[in-house]
């Protein structure tokens, strides 16, 4: 498995750090890996950090939405953090506002909110 994304379990929360040079097959593989890991570790929440991503097109955007969808089904609320301003603008213009995905400004905020919700 290529290390195009790092998965870390911290205090019952699964942290997902996506690398800058992740490719299409890596990100599809990440879906499998994440759902397995979340299930195996009984994660209470997921935080996906995309601060390394300079480009998010509709394909990657859709995968991110699906990751969040998987999280919800596995009872692990999912937060997306670290989106760059240019990426946010571009996604909105592509019509991808990811309404079903929760967002936070950074990891700290996401973790705080996950804790508060529990």
């Amino acid at each position: 498995m290529a290390q195009a994304a790092g998965l870390f379990m911290v205090d019952e929360i699964m942290l997902v750090a996506i690398d800058e040079d992740i490719n299409d097959s890596d990100i599809v593989a990440l879906q499998d890996r994440l759902s397995e890991e979340v299930y195996a570790n009984d994660a209470q929440g997921i935080v996906i950090d995309i601060s390394a991503l300079e480009i998010v097109d509709t394909f990657v955007g859709r995968i991110i939405a699906q990751l969040a969808g998987i999280g919800i089904l596995l009872d692990a609320p999912t937060y997306l953090v670290g989106m760059r301003p240019a990426v946010a603008m571009t996604l909105v213009e592509l019509g991808m506002t990811l309404p079903s995905v929760k967002t936070a400004r950074n990891l700290q905020h996401a973790v705080t909110r996950l804790r508060a919700a529990r």
Partner: peptide, 18 residues
């Protein structure tokens, strides 16, 4: 500017993927 680059590269990514 960063935003101009991001817009164009994303557009190209969409088209190339198609």
């Amino acid at each position: 500017k960063v935003i101009r680059k991001t817009r164009l590269v994303t557009a190209v990514s969409e088209i190339f993927r198609n």
